[in-house]
Structure formats: structure tokens, C-alpha cells
Design a protein around this nucleic acid. Structure first.
Ligand SMILES: [Mn+2]
Ligand SMILES: [Mn+2]
Ligand SMILES: [Mn+2]
Ligand SMILES: [Mn+2]
Lengths: 220, 220
DNA sequence: TATAAAAGTTAGATATATCTAACAATTTTA
DNA sequence: TAAAATTGTTAGATATATCTAACTTTTATA
């Protein structure tokens, strides 16, 4: 099977393409940045991934996942999100603690284990951060989600996902009293720096653009 | 923390010392054999483990675990056996399938995960093969267990543990209808090759010394 | 369009973990 | 106790995954 490093590159490529909406492909430096590695390291690995036909890549060109590369990337994401769900639902972990552990667990190689874990969790559709869990066939539920930062004053919405796994961010989310499904009301926005006044559970808060860019919502 | 390779060496040293009752220490070749590696590979790793003060070892001398080496070995065994218990009890795996997966899971580094898993499983004392699970303080339950091969004709006993994790062995155990707690009656032994006639659940079988050496029992 | 900046690659080094081949030390045994 | 067998070590190679420094190619911009 694939090494941990290889799986991390595949997952990163998939996520960058999706998150940044980067259709035409990813650059070496961009990928290096995302993975917190140096460009030569990435360049070196790319050659390996190309030989294994997991990526499409020509010297000085953009990188994209091949079909098999994408399929495996989705599988790694499935593993990651199922484990996160297990940690929260069954072991009572706080949602801000599960990502780091799932980074390790996602590399365990046993398709049967993942199938059984999926069943044990009753085939969940979303992980504790609201992200969709690919099913056994690699199919991912997509919805018409928006970023909180896109909403206008007066809008009401429900938090469906957080797009930042860092403990600092999730701690802050917790401190604001926000959870998956929390009702958020946009009171006002500040033109100057796009910060936003929101009301959550009757509590009023001012949050930065950096923050509202990491909150995915569904209009209500 | 420790690498997977390091953890495997520590676990192997602990097991050899225990299983073979090897008190004075383990040799390079013996350890290499056990781990299915070559002696130079082991020699090389030993130097690293010595610098980290996990083993006591002098050139051409016997290898023993240091206190911290032993403590970590026990912790790896705790992780392994808790995961095996999880796989059987919660994910409904057959006991002959869990060892290989636990070989991977035992290297996940998160003490909190293990504590919570232990609680989730209601602090089990024995794994699916009947082996004792070290508690959070590293304490291991020991009992007055014997090998089936040590019993004399007429003896009755209960199977408490199997000492071979291989699929071939466990499949055979299953085929004989043996489970943890099965009642076994020793009918007769053959002097020539120490094979044994046993009765299990009314069924009569003849089993080899190799087999009876891998079955731990408690007299009844 | 020439130059500067950004992006990407190559070369060579390091660390981990493994191997084979050759050699050395220790232990067994005749 | 000398030779043989066993056990253990050293040297040098390979594979993976990473780094820094130097260089090249592509892209942006003056
Ligand atoms: Mn995550
Ligand atoms: Mn990962
Ligand atoms: Mn096992
Ligand atoms: Mn292991």
C-alpha cells in the first residue's frame, strides 16, 4: 500500500484543489507550503508519485491528481473523518482534540477495519466538524454551503462546518458558544476590515474576516 | 516519542524474556530471529536504543531492557491488547483477524486515546486471546497458568489463553471448537511425540506437542 | 523587451531502518 | 587446548523522506 507520506501528499492535493477551488492544478511551492515542507522535498516526492501514476505532472507544470490518486485521497479523507467521528461520538473527545489523533489513525491500512468502523458508527454522513464523510464507494455529499463571510447584515444561518482544524481556532469557536447547528445572526459588517457583528445564543460578538472565512453555514 | 521500529524492538525484548523465561538477557541473533530481521540490523538498532537508555547492552554481551525500556514495552503491549479487545468486542472481528491490525494500531501515540479506549471497553483485564492487559500504571495480572502440554491424562482444564497469534494457528483452534474458557479434558498422551488426545465439547481430537505448547490453561 | 522576481529543479547532505558480505570474538567440542 | 561452530560486529550499500545551497526556468513588470 501507500506510505504515510504518500497519503499525506494525496490528501493535500485533493484538499487544495477543493478548498482553494484550484482547478488547473497545484504548484510545487503551494503544495510545499501547505504541507510545511520545502519545495525540493515536494519535487522529489512528485517524481515518485508520478511513477506510481498517482499524479499528473510534467517538469515546470502544474500538478493534478490522477483518477487513482484522487480515489485514494478520498479514501484517506474517509478514514480520517470516520476516526474523528469515532473519537467524538464513542470516546467523548472534544472536537478540538480529534484532528491530531486522526492524522495518525488515517494511515492504518485495513479496509475491513474501516468498513466495520463505518457500520459501528451507523454510517455517519458528517464528521464532528461538519465535513462530509465519503461513503465506501468514495461518494461525497455536497451541499449549497456558504462561508459566514459571504453573508449580508440581517441574514440568519446555521453553522454546518468549520474549515480550520487548529486547536486555537476551535477553542475560540467553543468560547463563542458555537457548535455544529448553532444559529448565527449577522447584525452588521464593518467595511474597513470586513469584521462582523454576530449574535449567537443571545450573545453578541465581533469577529474578524479571518474567522468568518473559516465558518461554513447554511442559510436559514 | 518512540518510532514504530523502536517500539517493536522493546516489545520483542519483553516478550522473549517472558515467554522463553530468558532471565539473563537476550542475544543479538535470537532477537533478530524473533523480529525476522538480520543480526546486523539488530546490532545497529541496539546502539541507538542504548544511547536512549532503553536497553542495557555491552558489545558481545546479553541484552536486557532498562527500567524505562521495560515500562514502554509494557505500554506498547497495553495498547496492542486494548486495540485487539476493541476490534473483537466492538467491531465484531474474529479473534484470528485482530492481531495484524493491532500491530499497526499499537503505534498510535496518544496516551489520552488509550485511557479513553480503556474506559470505553470498561477496563478489560484480558484480551481476546486471554492475555492480561497491563493497567494504566503498567501492572499486569499474572495467574498460575500452565501449558496444555504440561497436563497429565485425566486432567481437566479451561482454555485461558493462546500463545500464538498466527492465523493458521487460530483457524485451527476455531476448527477444533475451542474458545476462551472452553473445557478441555486430557484423555491420553503419546510418549513417542508427546501428541495428546483431548475431548472438547464431546468431540475427540488428537493434537501435536507444537499445538499443546501454544495453549495456556487453568486446571479445573 | 530586458530585467527582476517568483517558481521550480538539481545536487549533495542527513537521518532512519534495513540489507549482504566479510570479519572477529566467544563458545562448544573433539 | 586447538579446531570448529556459533554468535556477534563492521563496512558498505539501498530505500525512504527530509533538508540547504545553488542553479534554471518561467512569469511579471518597469
Ligand atoms: Mn481533521
Ligand atoms: Mn496524515
Ligand atoms: Mn496480538
Ligand atoms: Mn508492532
Amino acid at each position: 500500500m501507500y506510505t504515510q507520506a504518500e497519503e499525506n501528499y494525496l490528501k493535500a492535493l485533493f484538499s487544495i484543489t477543493l478548498e482553494v477551488g484550484n482547478e488547473e492544478g497545484v504548484g510545487t511551492n503551494e503544495l510545499a507550503d501547505y504541507l510545511k515542507l520545502t519545495p525540493p522535498t515536494v519535487n522529489n516526492m512528485l517524481k515518485k508519485l508520478k511513477t506510481k501514476e498517482l499524479v499528473n505532472y510534467e517538469k515546470y507544470g502544474k500538478i493534478t491528481l490522477s483518477d487513482s490518486g484522487r480515489a485514494h485521497a478520498v479514501y484517506v479523507i474517509r478514514k480520517h473523518r470516520l476516526w474523528e467521528t469515532f473519537l467524538c461520538k464513542k470516546l467523548d473527545f472534544n472536537w478540538n482534540a480529534v484532528h491530531e489523533i486522526a492524522e495518525q489513525l488515517e494511515h492504518i491500512d485495513s479496509p475491513e477495519l474501516i468498513d466495520r468502523l463505518d457500520k459501528f458508527l451507523d454510517y455517519p454522513s458528517f464528521d464532528p466538524h461538519g465535513d462530509p464523510i465519503p461513503d465506501a464507494k468514495g461518494k461525497i455529499k455536497t451541499g449549497s454551503r456558504k462561508l459566514l463571510s459571504e453573508l449580508k447584515p440581517g441574514a440568519q444561518c446555521r453553522l454546518v462546518a468549520v474549515k480550520d482544524d487548529s486547536t486555537a481556532f476551535l477553542d475560540y469557536v467553543n468560547r463563542l458558544g458555537l457548535k455544529i447547528n448553532s444559529l448565527i445572526e449577522v447584525v452588521d459588517t464593518v467595511d474597513y476590515d470586513h469584521s462582523m457583528h454576530i449574535v449567537v445564543d443571545g450573545g453578541s460578538h465581533t469577529v474578524s474576516k479571518k474567522f468568518t472565512d473559516s465558518i461554513q453555514v447554511l442559510a436559514v
